[in-house]
Each structure stands twice: as structure tokens, then as C-alpha cells.
Design a protein around this nucleic acid. Structure first.
Lengths: 231, 231
DNA sequence: CTAAGTATCTTGGTACGCCATAATACGGCT
DNA sequence: AGCCGTATTATGGCGTACCAAGATACTTAG
């Protein structure tokens, strides 16, 4: 959340990543990618072995993921991968709608054509990734699209919140984008956001952003209802 | 963030609080109450001594507070109490406005008179606390007011987000409520929210909630600009 | 066959030790 | 006297070993 790019040009580019952060990323990724399934127990000592780090690290990582909502702690039982119920997922989409709508409105009111241009660039990346069937790329560039939306109006706190919530529904996202003709509908909706921003139409941008997450939410709901098998 | 109230009625109500949670609350409270000032270094071994717990616990607590945004970690320097800059505070108020506005609108659309009644009760508690000059009480009941707002429409995720953000501006809150005639203006604005909800006026409730945090934000801005001495 | 008792698994928590690094103090050399 | 290299200290990062307590699975005695 604290990207410090000032003076990065000359810096010596140490890894600087602490072991804990590496482990954190690994485990988070493992959960998001489905290597650990919702409900799976996360036994500390097993993770130590798998990650090759000490229990100290693993414990800190589990706490961190717990506060992110990716891991739940059953009292006297230990940590498990948090299971996502439909209601929570819908709430998360709703919050994203409110915040992304807000950011889109602010972008539109900014009256800076560079914003729409930058968003168009991300949008094109998304279309390309769809065409290449590069789903991780779609997710990454979608994320980048919204990051631009927030950072262009200096709303990094809201971006942090959205990001935090998004990881919790990540596996849903990877299913929604594979939905029939989402590769056309999704970018089209995002283009509506960009258009409204370019026109300086604040309410229109807000509504377009809301519509986009609303349709994502609807798809997610259908997906979750369809295959209760996993959760 | 994971309040599990289902089936709580019969449970035997053990303390169940783990030592780590106790320590977490202690340190969080110490930061919020100003015992640790923004910028203060939080030396692990010192905290061990002051809290009477092991370094493992202290480290986990620091990580947790870091993910809450109350603690920042300087590379190669260690953790300090996060300093709050004005821009971030304004962003936090803005997010609260968006989410509380959303909740208020949903409450209004619910058409359930019990909601407005419950909010009125909290509001009366706030007025009483103001009259008794019980500022911690004001904060607690204000929090309770908003918790009601969110929980009445089953938006516990959004409530969690608001709560998370609120601790970061807690010392600002305790200054804004002491402002001249905030004891009249604040409850009056909240009464407008309740009225709109009772009338079933969704947009009105949204706007009233937005107005309330907007004025809180304005006061906070004045406070922060006025005394740069601390931050 | 069942109930009680036991062993095992796992987390919560503690203590201690080691290493790396940054900052500071110190001491010798020119 | 002033500067540079080194020793010390403070601190975080990380690991290991250990114990207590609760939950669970297993075993054994009646």
C-alpha cells in the first residue's frame, strides 16, 4: 500500500523483502489460487515444513491473513481457510460499487483527459488478455484499471479497502470472467465508465461503475448458487 | 471483523480471550488514547516488558496493528505509531460518508419503523452523554448508532470496514466532538438521518448521512490545520 | 459392546539464542 | 587537530526448544 517510488531511479534495488513478507505472499497466493481450499485447516507446523520457515513466521502470517479476512480462526481448533458465503460476497461487491462509483465520479469531475487515456490503455490490455485467453492477465489488468481510477484522484485509502476486499472474492472473480461472453460485456461496461469520465459526466460515471460491479455480482451469485459443491 | 453471534444465546460465555487479543486491545487502546504518540517508536523488547508478555505476542500484535493502519513499519528501523496526515483523514471521512450514506439509504428503503426507533434510542443516549459531558460515552453511543444503521440491513462487512477506518481517526473524533456546539449540531444532523429513514426517503437519508460526516470532516480539517504541533 | 481412560495432535504461549544491520562511540593515525 | 576505521550497542529478523491445555482419536477394561 506504500509504494515509494520517489528517488527509485538510482536506488540499488535490494530485495529488501523480509522472509515474512515472502511467506505471506506465498500463502495468500496459495489460498487465492485455490491450492488451499476454503475450509481447509492450516496446520502451523505443516506450513512450516511446506514453506521452509519457522513457526514464528507462520504464526505472524496467519494473523495477518486473518485480519485480511482470508483465514478464520476457530477457537480451540486453529486456523482454516475462510469460507465465503454468498451474503458476504454480495456485500463486498456492493461496497466496491459504492467506492468505485465514487472514484469514477471524482475522475469525471476532474476534467483531465489524461485520466480517460490512461484508463483506455488498461482497457485495451484487458481486451488483449481476453483475446489471448490469458485469465490471470485479465485479472491483473482489471485491477490496474481500478487502481488507476483511484490513484488518479489520490484516493489510495479507498483503493486499499477495495484491494483488501477483492482478495476475498478472488476465486469468484476468476470464475465470473470466464462466464459466457463476459469478455465482451465486461470491457463494454468499463468503456462506458471511461466515456462518462471523458465527457465529464460525474453521475454517469458513478452509475456506469455501479452497473459494472452489479453485473459482476449477479454472475457471482449465479456461480455460487450453481455449484454449492465446494463451499 | 468476524463476530459470530449465531447460537450465542446458550453458550457458556467463557472468557476465551487469548492473551494475544488482550495485548492487542491494550496496545491499540494505548495508541488511540494517546499514550503512544504518532511517530513514537514501538520497541519490541520494551513492549514485552511493559505488557508482561513474550516477544512472540508483541510481534503478532504489531503486525496486526500494522494491517489496521495504526502502526507503520520503517524498513531497517522498526515499527512506529503511524502518523495521520490530513489527506488520509479526509479520505477516511469520505469513505465513511459513502458507506454510511449507503446504509442509511438501505435503512430508509427497508420501510421498517423499528429501525428508526432503535436509532432514536441511540440518539437519545448520545444527547444524554453530551449533557453529562461524558465524551467517551458520546463516542461509544455514536458508534452504536452507526452499528445499528449497518446491522439493521445486515451489512456487517461494510460495518467492519467503517470500524477499521474509524480507529485510525479516533483521536480526531474525540477532538471534533468537543468542538463548540457540536453537542447540538451533531445530534441534529443525525436526527435528520433518522427522520429521512422514518419517512422512507432513501436519497434524503443518504444525503443526511453524507452531510453529517462532511461536517465532521470539516471540523477535523480545521483541528488538524490549527495545531500542527502534534502530528 | 460400551464407557472410561489414554495417547496424540495442535494451538497458545514462553524463553532463549543467534545473526544482520544501523547508529554511535572510540581510538589510533596522519 | 581532524579524519577514518573499528568496536560496541541497540534492535529487528528469525529459529529452536519447551510446556500447558483443549480437542480428538484410539484403546482397553468391565
Amino acid at each position: 500500500m506504500n509504494d515509494d517510488l520517489r528517488g527509485a531511479a538510482i536506488r540499488v534495488e535490494r530485495p529488501a523483502k523480509t522472509l515474512r513478507e515472502l511467506a505471506l505472499d506465498k500463502v495468500r497466493e496459495a489460498i487465492v489460487n485455490g491450492y488451499f481450499r476454503p475450509g481447509d485447516r492450516l496446520v502451523e507446523r505443516d506450513l512450516c515444513a511446506q514453506l521452509g520457515v519457522s513457526r514464528t513466521i507462520v504464526r505472524e502470517v496467519l494473523r495477518h491473513l486473518e485480519s485480511e479476512g482470508l483465514v478464520a480462526n476457530l477457537p480451540n481448533k486453529g486456523p482454516i481457510v475462510a469460507l465465503l458465503d454468498l451474503g458476504e460476497a454480495k456485500q463486498i461487491y456492493e461496497i466496491r460499487g459504492a467506492l468505485e462509483g465514487m472514484a469514477a465520479r471524482l475522475c469525471a469531475e476532474q476534467g483531465n483527459p489524461a485520466i480517460a487515456d490512461a484508463l483506455d490503455k488498461s482497457l485495451q490490455d484487458i481486451r488483449n488478455s481476453y483475446q489471448d485467453k490469458d485469465m490471470p492477465g485479465v485479472l491483473a489488468h482489471t485491477s490496474s484499471f481500478y487502481q488507476t481510477l483511484f490513484s488518479m484522484v489520490d484516493r489510495h485509502v479507498a483503493w486499499g479497502v477495495v484491494n483488501l476486499l477483492t482478495v476475498r472474492i478472488n476465486h469468484l472473480r476468476s470464475m465470473t470472467i470466464k462466464t459466457e461472453n463476459r469478455g465482451v460485456q465486461g470491457p463494454a461496461q468499463m468503456a462506458r465508465i471511461v466515456d462518462a469520465i471523458r465527457r465529464g459526466d460525474g453521475p454517469g460515471a458513478y452509475q456506469a461503475a455501479m452497473d459494472h460491479v452489479a453485473s459482476a455480482s449477479a454472475i457471482a451469485e449465479a456461480v455460487l448458487s450453481g455449484q454449492q459443491s465446494i463451499d
